[in-house]
């Protein structure tokens, strides 16, 4: 997935600068957040519990005022012109936000009135939202008979009634089983493809951020510690690892140092342009590179030219979990791993 290039003059979907929020004059939930989200992007906001994710979303959705700093949605100030912002956004909080003792369709009807969908478009909007979230079969059943995943899709459907320019989702799939999560995301992706809505979501699930987002920001202790595409973030952790292993029975193991990998050969690999570092552990040579696809032939050639043989190559890429742990893992022990 590509993130749209920053076209000069194009209005950002979300823009914040120096945003802070202090609770009770002591607890600093946000500590100078600068954020840019381009229109049409799916933006994932990652962070440990209590890192400020929900606070930021509640400021952007005009529920709270920031202590200082600015935030704009499509150029409109969320503090000074909150009511205009409320007309262009859809918001699904983390907790259940539909009434359980009426039907799904009735929930959509009430929300369409609350959200000021014009009377002549109300019926159409409700049908569209039901269809977009695949709720046709259950719409006329009481919500207290729904599964968790279906309730979540109904909540998202309610946010789609106004055809929002930005859709805010706070932990959209928390507590759902994998198939329900998939169903939620499939519906969302299809809707987004059709309407081009900007989607901003908070999550704990790295795989969701990895699969469905164009851009990711990681927040820790109220500050954005790293941002970029999933690929960029993963690359920021020493790119890839090329692992060369050799068979213990081979002769070289007996005759060469370093458990079979010639020290000179390893040094030569280390000096290659595309290689960051190389290390031997046991019968394994690990080569750290930025771009595995380009580096691999050069490393193989260097090893062969030194007469080093091996019988297996594997590559390992850092996952987004690794990225998260690196940048936000040490939430309680200080602002550790601060790379951005």
């Amino acid at each position: 997935m590509l993130s749209p290039a920053g076209v000069p003059g194009m209005t950002l979907a979300i823009e914040t600068s120096g945003l802070t929020k202090t609770y009770n004059r002591r607890t600093r939930a946000l500590d100078g957040v600068d954020l840019q989200v381009w229109p049409g992007e799916v933006f994932a906001f990652l962070g440990p519990n209590g890192s400020g994710k929900t606070t930021l979303m509640r400021i952007l959705t005009t529920q709270f005022r920031p202590t200082s700093g600015e935030a704009r949605a499509f150029g409109t100030d969320v503090v000074r012109r909150g009511s205009e912002v409320r007309r262009m956004i859809g918001y699904v909080p983390q907790e259940t936000s539909v009434w359980l003792d009426i039907t799904g369709r009735e929930n959509l009807l009430i929300y369409s009135k609350v959200y000021a969908v014009p009377k002549d478009r109300r019926k159409g909007s409700i049908e569209d939202a039901i269809q977009a979230m695949g709720l046709e079969e259950v719409a006329d059943r009481m919500v207290n008979t729904y599964s968790g995943g279906t309730i979540r899709r109904l909540e998202i459907a309610a946010a789609l009634l106004v055809k929002p320019k930005i859709l805010f989702l706070d932990e959209p799939t928390i507590g759902l089983d994998p198939s329900a999560r998939k169903a939620v995301w499939e519906s969302l992706t299809a809707f987004k493809g059709e309407c081009g809505t900007t989607v901003f979501f908070n999550t704990h699930y790295m795989d969701e951020a990895d699969h469905y987002s164009d851009e990711i920001a990681i927040i820790n202790r109220g500050r954005i510690v790293k941002s970029g595409t999933a690929r960029e973030l993963k690359r920021s952790l020493n790119g890839e690892i090329l692992r060369f292993s050799r068979n213990h029975k081979q002769e070289h193991y007996q005759t060469h140092g370093q458990n079979g990998f010639d020290e000179y050969a390893v040094k030569k690999v280390r000096e290659l342009d595309l290689v960051r570092d190389a290390a031997v552990s046991g019968s394994l040579l690990e080569v750290y590179v930025d771009d595995g696809e380009r580096a691999l032939p050069l490393v193989v050639e260097a090893l062969w030219s030194e007469g080093v043989t091996f019988d297996r190559i594997s590559t390992a890429r850092p996952t987004l979990d690794d990225v998260f742990l690196r940048y936000a893992g040490s939430c309680r022990s200080g602002r550790g791993g601060d790379g951005g």
Binding site: R87, V92, E95, T96, S97, V98, Y115, A158
Partner: peptide, 14 residues
């Protein structure tokens, strides 16, 4: 309040 309904009502235009 414990659920998300109030938050959602606060994000309505009224």
């Amino acid at each position: 309040r414990e659920t998300g309904i109030l938050k959602r009502l606060l994000v309505a235009p009224a």
